[in-house]
């Protein structure tokens, strides 16, 4: 079975896309959940500050999301552009 060069490269790109998004989802998933949990705990201690605390949580989660978005971008690049 003669493997074409272009075929091999494309296959490698697809595997890379899957691995990139798969592993890349682990970190933000755990981190954002942790942030959400701590925010709930803080709101429980101080319900009047719920608005501020929720906003802080969302900002924090958005920042941790960034690496997840990088993984998504790389995955999409590998699928469509390479």
């Amino acid at each position: 079975m003669a493997i074409e060069g272009a075929d091999l490269v494309r296959a490698a790109a697809l595997m890379g896309a899957g691995i990139s998004m798969g592993l890349g989802a682990i970190g933000p998933g755990v981190g954002e959940g942790f942030a959400a949990g701590k925010a709930c705990e803080a709101i429980g201690r101080n319900p009047k500050e719920a608005g501020l605390l929720t906003r802080t949580m969302l900002v924090g989660q958005a920042v941790s999301e960034s690496t997840g978005i990088y993984s998504l971008v790389v995955a999409l690049l590998l699928i469509f552009v390479v």
């Binding site: 998004m21 989802a25 682990i26 998933g29």
Partner: peptide, 11 residues
């Protein structure tokens, strides 16, 4: 597969 691990633990 891998993508399900992080959010599962986090949530």
């Amino acid at each position: 597969g891998f993508g399900g691990i992080g959010p599962g633990v986090g949530e």
